[in-house]
Amino acid sequence: MTPTQKIPAAVSMEEARRLAREHKDPGALLALVPYAVFLGLRMDLRDLAAPVLHLPFKPSLIGNAALPAIHGGVVASFMESAALMHLLLMLDERRVPKSIDFSIDYLRSAQAEDSFAACAVERLGRRVAQVQIRCWQSDAARPVALGRAHFLLDADAPA
């Protein structure tokens, strides 16, 4: 068993969000989610109203060496991470939203190239957010996968 360490977040969530929004620097926000860093996730914040999540290709993401194709599980966890980062950026939550469920439809096999995701919060309640996620590669008109997720929000936090 690998010993786990408590990795302190370098800056608070509020500060990380401010850096992302005001300086378009997503580094501290991504550091709040170690698995997003493990995958190699990046955030394109040129349009703050429509952030694009970017997963640069690396050989370790391959799930089928013969094709080669990116692992379907990687595509799914990229899209889940994308939804989470989207919420962290767009909402003023004081803790990382908790995943309730996630569903993905695979439309095409993901090639050995960079992947992108855009999210839309289709329903934002006091306690639950519903997020739609679209993932594509070289051609944004031909999505690789579509996903949706529910997240539990921190209802006790002041608005």
Binding site: T2, T4, I7, A9, V33, P34, S77, E80
Partner: peptide
Amino acid sequence: KPEFLGDVEHQLIHTG
């Protein structure tokens, strides 16, 4: 693995 965390403060593994 430590890299699997999704929420450092609350010590939760990322659902991905």
